[in-house]
């Protein structure tokens, strides 16, 4: 496997609770991977560790061979901006901004001109089938549409890796299936590695590889 991300012996505790225990996994450059487990299995914490949103108590994460574990929060933010797209179950769109502005949101602090930002955001919105809803605010969009906008936002920096936490969790099964198809299309067409956290076996079945977690540990790895 052509490795993009490697997690080695990750350990994370919150007080007395061991959320992640000795987790090691590898994500290839074009992988479509699902991490599955029940609520409390540690899958979301594992995703946060992979995204650099949490620091492991022990273990390390290598991205393209480089250890990102010792990086400070600003360096990790910069790393996410350059390499990672995040998708959340609750979409987390800014309610005051239009779909277009939400997609461009990660680029706001950059020195890019507004015109260029908008050009890129329009491209991404069209890519996820939302080109016709640029001016709409999140409150004017359906759940599926909001998640498409969130995926467009995750793509705006041309990431190598998309980390999605329960991307279909707030959607009906039909819309969920459409979102999974979209992520699969991006994985294939843009060569973006996708890691999905889910508790739904049907969603996990769409992935090339499924990692099962229980009590903070990896208990299964199915291709």
């Amino acid at each position: 496997m052509n490795s993009l991300l490697q997690a080695e012996n990750l350990h994370k505790t919150f007080g007395q609770v061991e959320a992640v225990r000795d987790v090691s996994l590898e994500v290839g450059k074009t992988d479509f991977l699902a991490i599955i487990g029940r609520s409390g299995s540690g899958k979301t914490t594992a995703l946060h560790l992979l995204a650099g949103l949490e620091s492991p108590n022990s273990g390390r994460i290598l991205f393209q061979g480089k250890d990102i574990s010792p990086l400070n929060e600003d360096s990790l933010a910069l790393w996410r901006r350059e390499h990672v797209g995040l998708v959340f179950q609750s979409f987390y769109l800014i309610p005051t901004l239009s779909a277009l502005e939400n997609v461009a949101f990660p680029l706001y602090p950059s020195s890019m001109t507004a015109k260029e930002r908008h050009r890129q955001a329009i491209t991404r919105l069209k890519q996820v089938g939302m080109g016709h809803r640029q001016k709409h605010r999140p409150g004017q969009l359906s759940g599926g549409e909001q998640q498409r906008v969130a995926i467009a936002r995750a793509l705006i920096n041309n990431p190598n890796l998309i980390l999605a936490d329960e991307p279909t969790g707030n959607l009906d099964s039909e819309t969920g299936a459409e979102i999974m198809q979209l992520l699969r299309k991006l994985n294939l067409e843009d060569n973006v590695a996708v890691v999905i956290i889910t508790h739904d076996p049907e969603v996990a079945a769409e992935a090339d590889r499924v990692i099962k977690m229980k009590d903070g540990k990896i208990v299964g790895n199915k291709y």
Partner: peptide, 20 residues
């Protein structure tokens, strides 16, 4: 809080958030 957390998650530096 949620918007600010999102800024951090999508790669805003601390100084960019403070400036904004």
């Amino acid at each position: 809080r949620r918007d600010i957390a999102l800024m951090r998650a999508v790669g805003w530096l601390r100084i960019s958030i403070v400036k904004q």
